[in-house]
Simulated assay, not measured.
Amino acid sequence: MFVYELRFECFADTTITAAEKAINNLLEAYRANGQVLGREFAVAFNDGEFKVRLLMPEQTSLHPKHNSPWVKRALTELTDAKLLAPREKFIGQDINSEASTTEVPSWQVLYTSYVHMCSPLRSGDSLMPIPLYHIPATFNGDHKRVIKWQTEWQACDELQMAAATKAEYAALEELTSHQSDLFRRGWDLRGRIEYLTKIPTYYYLYRVGGESLATEKQRPCPRCGSKDWLLDEPLLDMFHFRCDNCRIVSNISWDHQ
């Protein structure tokens, strides 16, 4: 991933409020389309211009060909706030994040965690993230629903990893149950992405707990009950189960690895 600085110059008198609204609207539009990553953006004002540093999947993430209808509209609305189109300044490659894949995968998977800022759509061949703007818009012109699902998954993951409150159990249920709201929304998004891309797309179902390694290996697919989903060798050193009918991958419980 790469770090860029965007600079917004004023071409006429404006107000902080108007500029803030226009810039934040553009940043949220970029985020909803997967063109910038993260949740919070610090916008600084100095010497008559606004600056913000952003993390992007690729060096070409802000190319106009990737822009969603929301992004295009937000760019035109900068004029109303008396701001010029943003100028880009390349800062460098982020050393703490993963590189995005440029290859079309043979299969892909919805997978994330609370420590990942990258796209939740991963190549099944390498587990490298696939920038969302490289696939057709999932709903309403962009990928806002996918980003929202990712945010909810990460929030549950952080709660269960902290293991400090009773909320841990509710969060764990959302991550591990095929009957949870989180699973239902994510599995539906998975199906939408598969329909749009024509690439087999799977949902990662997190697994923790269980009685023993032996009983884990006998665990059936939670959605269809098939016991034929245990793999001879784990995919990507992580997924021990894969149900091609239900499009689910999972792991042997982290408690027994």
Rank of each mutant, 00 (worst) to 15 (best):
D94S: 15
R87Q: 11
I130L: 08
E158T: 07
L132P: 02
V115E: 14
G209A: 04
G186M: 01
T165P: 03
L110M: 12
N140D: 13
L132N: 02
R87E: 09
T197A: 01
W153R: 05
P136M: 06
P105E: 05
A155H: 11
L196Q: 12
L189D: 01
I147V: 15
E103I: 09
L205C: 07
M117G: 06
Q93K: 14
L121C: 02
A137W: 00
S126W: 06
Y114N: 11
T215K: 15
H134M: 10
D181A: 13
L182T: 02
H178L: 00
T138F: 00
R185K: 14
N96Y: 14
R122L: 09
Q150E: 12
C156R: 01
P120G: 06
E103Q: 14
Y202G: 02
M128N: 12
K144F: 02
E98D: 13
V208A: 10
E103G: 03
F90Y: 13
T215V: 07
E174P: 03
E211Y: 07
I95V: 09
R122N: 08
D94W: 04
Q160W: 08
V146S: 03
A85L: 11
E174L: 05
Y204S: 14
A85C: 06
T112N: 07
P200R: 07
P200A: 01
S100W: 03
I130V: 13
E168Q: 14
V146F: 01
I95R: 06
Q108F: 02
Y111C: 11
G141Y: 00
L175K: 04
T101M: 06
T151G: 09
D94Y: 05
S97Y: 10
M161W: 09
R207V: 07
G92P: 07
M117F: 14
M117D: 11
G186C: 05
Y203E: 06
Q150C: 09
K144Y: 06
P105Q: 02
V146P: 00
F90H: 09
Y203W: 12
A85W: 11
I193N: 02
Y111T: 14
I95C: 10
F139S: 08
L121T: 02
Y111A: 10
G209Q: 10
V208T: 14
R207M: 08
E152N: 14
S106G: 10
A214S: 10
R207W: 01
K198L: 12
L213R: 13
V109P: 11
K166M: 12
V208P: 06
Y111P: 12
Y203S: 07
T102R: 12
R192G: 04
E152D: 15
S212P: 12
L127E: 12
R192F: 05
R184H: 12
E216I: 04
A167I: 05
Q93R: 15
S212T: 11
D188N: 13
Q108M: 13
Y203L: 05
D181Q: 15
A85V: 13
E152F: 08
G141V: 03
M161C: 10
P200N: 06
Q93H: 13
T102V: 15
R87V: 11
I199S: 00
N96K: 14
L205Y: 05
S212Q: 05
T215E: 15
I199E: 04
W107M: 08
G209I: 04
R87N: 09
K144Q: 11
E194T: 03
D188C: 04
F90W: 11
L121D: 05
